[in-house]
Design a protein around this nucleic acid. Structure first.
Length: 271
DNA sequence: ATGGGCACCTGGCTGC
DNA sequence: TGCAGCCAGGTGCCCA
């Protein structure tokens, strides 16, 4: 479900509710996420005051005075802000209770999400240490992507979805960015000119930025912290539009599978 | 080092 | 109506 824009939208939604609030308790109903929630985690986090809510790739980082929560939404996770005591529904795996009477509730049907506590800087945590540059930061530029693509025979789509290269570009926005840049998703990364890779960098930035402005993309079940969907789906050019006419040239949008992931592209606009 | 495939899990949809 | 099969916004890990 959530890619970078959905995680960022969630972050912006929970930030004002969490900031400077203290955790009064935590309810864990299901600890078997992608990695089990540490049994001691509720004790570690209880009594802590939230100092910041940030994002690295698709990880949400909730910083307290003496440690941080590292939260990933996986494929189907979402966070909601609810009044404490709201009855839990199926797949509501944990609640963080705040001294304001609000509750941060995590729901994740597929349980690919995760929750870790660290007392080290989150950036040095094993899950984050290997991550590449943030796509919305200035260090992600044409020169960087060209260097990363040099000599690579893997498809460009696989390269921009590789978190060690650039962190947070998922399946929807990879397809959409490649469409906007006019690059075929299956093209070997190392055989694309620096000029075109520069266009791809711009396209990734534009697509992610536009999606954040629209509150993300809701395909099936994504909702933000208020429980409302994102509206970027209306601006998708290729994702899940197999057989539909290209919005630019009217060619039929094609579907292919690369690396077990669905890929969508326009055979005429993308080379 | 690089590329490719698998696994983890539930739910919704399709087609017989 | 029932059910098997397939697919889904991610990503760590294993193997060649």
């Amino acid at each position: 479900m959530p890619e970078l824009p959905e995680v960022e939208t969630t972050r912006r939604g929970i930030l004002p509710v969490l900031l400077e609030r203290s955790v009064t308790g935590m309810i864990v109903r299901e600890s078997r996420l992608r990695w089990p929630i540490a049994p001691e985690l509720p004790a570690w986090v209880t009594g802590q005051r939230v100092r910041d809510v940030s994002r690295r790739a698709k990880y949400l980082l909730i910083r307290f005075d003496s440690g941080s929560l590292i939260l990933h939404l996986g494929m189907s996770g979402s966070l909601r802000i609810l009044p404490a005591g709201t009855p839990a529904l199926r797949h509501d795996h944990f609640d963080l209770l705040l001294d304001s009477g609000a509750c941060l509730r995590f729901n994740d049907p597929r349980r690919f999400g995760s929750l870790h506590w660290t007392t080290e800087p989150p950036a040095s945590h094993p899950l984050l240490a290997h991550l590449g540059v943030e796509p919305l930061e200035a260090s992600f530029d044409a020169a960087y992507l060209t260097a990363a693509a040099s000599g690579r025979r893997a498809p460009i789509k696989a390269l921009i979805m590789d978190g060690r290269v650039v962190a947070g570009v998922g399946n929807i926005y990879a397809s959409e960015s490649l469409f906007r840049a006019g690059i075929h998703p299956g093209r070997a990364a190392g055989r694309i000119s620096a000029h075109r890779l520069g266009r791809l960098v711009d396209a990734i930035r534009e697509v992610l930025g536009a999606a954040i402005r629209e509150g993300g993309t809701t395909l099936r079940d994504y909702v933000n912290a208020e429980g409302t969907p994102g509206y970027f789906r209306q601006q998708l050019y290729v994702y899940e539009r197999t057989g539909a006419p290209c919005r630019i040239c009217r060619s039929s949008i094609r579907h292919a599978v690369h690396g077990q992931r669905s890929t969508y592209y326009c055979p005429r606009c993308q080379r």
